[in-house]
Simulated assay, not measured.
Amino acid sequence: MTEETLFEFPCQFPIKAMGKNDIEIDVLVIEIIRRHAPEINETHIKTRPSKDGRFLAVTATITANSKQQLDAIYQDLTDHPLILFAL
């Protein structure tokens, strides 16, 4: 049985995560994503601090190969205590 999804794989898919800006949250997010998408490199990463600078949003665009891959990335990101949320 195949799972229905709105995406056609492979596809370019942006993953966004946010955490406090007092740690290297960008390095942490990249490390977690790289476990599931090893081809990611610095050209695929964008960071943006919050208005007051307390938080940092990290967006990594990967070539997603399956819904299972995306689910695993989001699970690992949301399981980490230093990552406040992932979209």
Score class of each variant (00 low, 15 high):
residue 1 M to V: 06
residue 1 M to C: 12
residue 1 M to F: 04
residue 1 M to Y: 07
residue 1 M to P: 06
residue 3 E to V: 14
residue 6 L to M: 15
residue 6 L to A: 11
residue 7 F to H: 14
residue 8 E to Q: 15
residue 8 E to N: 15
residue 8 E to C: 12
residue 8 E to H: 12
residue 9 F to G: 02
residue 9 F to C: 12
residue 10 P to L: 12
residue 10 P to N: 14
residue 11 C to S: 13
residue 11 C to Q: 12
residue 12 Q to V: 13
residue 14 P to W: 09
residue 15 I to P: 01
residue 16 K to H: 08
residue 16 K to W: 09
residue 16 K to Q: 11
residue 16 K to S: 05
residue 17 A to G: 10
residue 19 G to A: 07
residue 19 G to C: 03
residue 20 K to R: 15
residue 20 K to L: 03
residue 20 K to S: 01
residue 20 K to W: 02
residue 21 N to Q: 02
residue 21 N to I: 06
residue 22 D to T: 00
residue 22 D to K: 10
residue 22 D to C: 10
residue 25 I to W: 06
residue 25 I to M: 10
residue 25 I to L: 09
residue 26 D to M: 06
residue 26 D to F: 02
residue 27 V to R: 05
residue 27 V to H: 02
residue 27 V to L: 09
residue 28 L to G: 01
residue 28 L to H: 09
residue 30 I to E: 08
residue 30 I to G: 00
residue 30 I to K: 07
residue 31 E to N: 14
residue 31 E to L: 10
residue 32 I to P: 04
residue 32 I to W: 07
residue 33 I to V: 15
residue 34 R to D: 09
residue 34 R to A: 00
residue 35 R to F: 08
residue 36 H to E: 13
residue 36 H to Y: 15
residue 37 A to M: 05
residue 38 P to K: 15
residue 38 P to S: 11
residue 39 E to D: 15
residue 39 E to F: 11
residue 41 N to F: 06
residue 41 N to E: 07
residue 41 N to L: 09
residue 41 N to D: 12
residue 42 E to Q: 10
residue 42 E to D: 13
residue 43 T to H: 06
residue 43 T to R: 09
residue 44 H to A: 12
residue 45 I to D: 04
residue 45 I to P: 03
residue 46 K to W: 10
residue 47 T to I: 08
residue 48 R to A: 06
residue 48 R to L: 07
residue 49 P to C: 03
residue 49 P to I: 02
residue 50 S to E: 03
residue 51 K to R: 08
residue 51 K to H: 04
residue 52 D to W: 02
residue 52 D to S: 07
residue 52 D to G: 06
residue 54 R to F: 02
residue 54 R to M: 02
residue 55 F to T: 01
residue 56 L to H: 04
residue 57 A to H: 03
residue 58 V to P: 05
residue 58 V to F: 02
residue 58 V to D: 05
residue 58 V to S: 07
residue 58 V to A: 09
residue 58 V to N: 03
residue 59 T to G: 05
residue 60 A to K: 03
residue 61 T to V: 15
residue 61 T to P: 09
residue 62 I to Y: 07
residue 62 I to S: 01
residue 63 T to P: 08
residue 63 T to R: 12
residue 63 T to C: 13
residue 63 T to V: 13
residue 64 A to Q: 00
residue 64 A to W: 05
residue 65 N to P: 02
residue 65 N to F: 01
residue 65 N to Y: 09
residue 66 S to G: 11
residue 66 S to H: 14
residue 66 S to K: 14
residue 67 K to R: 14
residue 68 Q to C: 13
residue 68 Q to S: 11
residue 68 Q to E: 14
residue 70 L to H: 06
residue 71 D to W: 09
residue 72 A to Q: 10
residue 72 A to K: 09
residue 74 Y to N: 08
residue 75 Q to A: 11
residue 75 Q to W: 00
residue 76 D to Q: 11
residue 76 D to A: 14
residue 78 T to H: 12
residue 78 T to C: 04
residue 79 D to Y: 00
residue 79 D to W: 01
residue 80 H to L: 10
residue 80 H to E: 13
residue 81 P to Q: 07
residue 82 L to K: 12
residue 82 L to Q: 15
residue 82 L to T: 05
residue 83 I to L: 08
residue 83 I to H: 07
residue 83 I to E: 00
residue 84 L to W: 06
residue 84 L to R: 12
residue 84 L to G: 07
residue 84 L to A: 02
residue 85 F to H: 13
residue 85 F to T: 15
residue 86 A to Y: 01
residue 87 L to A: 14
residue 87 L to N: 10
